[in-house]
Structure formats: structure tokens, C-alpha cells
């Protein structure tokens, strides 16, 4: 029957070598763990870096590693790499919308900051004043016992 044929057509694709894919999973696991460790190391390192440019650079590297991790998860764990090319395209291409989404939002966020600093000098002055004790937000006041976290 036509549909039986169809059914096989959809499923045969998955009849794969289990051992090979288990190896692939293990390889990807190792890669993900290593990347995470590198990220953590960089995160630690950030605490001891003062140069603004260098900090940004490290943060940039962390973001690139983040994208690499995302790639491995989507491509191997979610199996996208083994789907038909057209399907990959229908998923990857719309994600490109995030580029302009991100750029426009962040650019405008930054601009908002600059405009506010320019036209609201009081705000700027306030935001540069060092605080003595932990600040409380808008909500109910809690007796925040400092566990050495804010020093």
C-alpha cells in the first residue's frame, strides 16, 4: 500500500548504526564539557581583569563559545545535522532574524542610556555615586542578612 511505503520511507532513515551514534554522542558530550570548562575558566578569569577592552574581549569569546555549544546541541543532540538539507534551512534561516532583532534592540538600549545620561544629569550623577550599604529595591524591605556576598 502506498502508506505502508510512506511509513517505511519516513522511518528507514532512522535505521542507523547504534554503536556509531553512541560514539558520536560521547564525542559531543566531551566537546560540550570541555567548552563549558573553558567558559568557566574564562568566567573566573574575568574577576581578575580590570582593563575594559580586555574584559569585553573575554566576554566576546565566551559568547562565541556559547554559540558553539548551541551548535553542538542542535546539530547532534537534536539531530538536526542528519535531517534533510531543506529542513535544516527552514529552521536555520528564520533564526537569522535574531541578528537584526538583537542588534536593533541593543543599539537602542545603549542609545537610551546615552540620551538619559545627557539629558538627565541628576540620573547620571546618581548612577556614579558609590553606595554605602546594600540597596533595597522597590518591593518590601527585607532584612537582608549579608552572607559575605556583598562586600
Amino acid at each position: 500500500m502506498d502508506n505502508l511505503h510512506e511509513l517505511q520511507e519516513v522511518t528507514h532513515h532512522h535505521e542507523f548504526d547504534r554503536e556509531a551514534s553512541r560514539k558520536e554522542v560521547m564525542r559531543v558530550t566531551v566537546i560540550l564539557s570541555v567548552i563549558t570548562l573553558i567558559e568557566l575558566a574564562l568566567g573566573f578569569w574575568l574577576m581578575y581583569i580590570d582593563g575594559e577592552f580586555f574584559r569585553l574581549l573575554i566576554k566576546g569569546v565566551i559568547c562565541v563559545l556559547m554559540l558553539a555549544k548551541a551548535f553542538y546541541i542542535v546539530a547532534y543532540f537534536m539531530h538536526l545535522k542528519h535531517e534533510l538539507r531543506n529542513m535544516i534551512m527552514t529552521i536555520v534561516v528564520p533564526l537569522l532574524l535574531f541578528v537584526w532583532f538583537l542588534v536593533a534592540f541593543l543599539y537602542d538600549g545603549n542609545s537610551y542610556k546615552n540620551l538619559k545620561n545627557t539629558y538627565d544629569p541628576y540620573h547620571y550623577e546618581q548612577s556614579k555615586t558609590k553606595a554605602e550599604k546594600p540597596a533595597h529595591g522597590a518591593g518590601e524591605t527585607k532584612d537582608a542578612k549579608k552572607e559575605g556576598s556583598v562586600e
Binding site: K130, P134, A135, H136, G139, D143, S149
Partner: peptide, 24 residues
């Protein structure tokens, strides 16, 4: 317990200034 919740942020900014609640 440290005092963080929606609308309440006990942590200071990295440069020691008062932070808005938006981090928490």
C-alpha cells in the same frame, strides 16, 4: 534569604554604585 526577589535587589553594581532592581 539574601533579600533578592522580584522588585528587590540587595546586590550592588560592579563599580560599587546602587543597582536598579532589574538584575533580580
Amino acid at each position: 534569604h539574601e533579600g533578592a526577589w522580584w522588585g528587590s535587589n540587595p546586590f550592588l553594581n560592579i563599580d560599587g554604585t546602587k543597582a536598579s532592581t532589574n538584575f533580580t
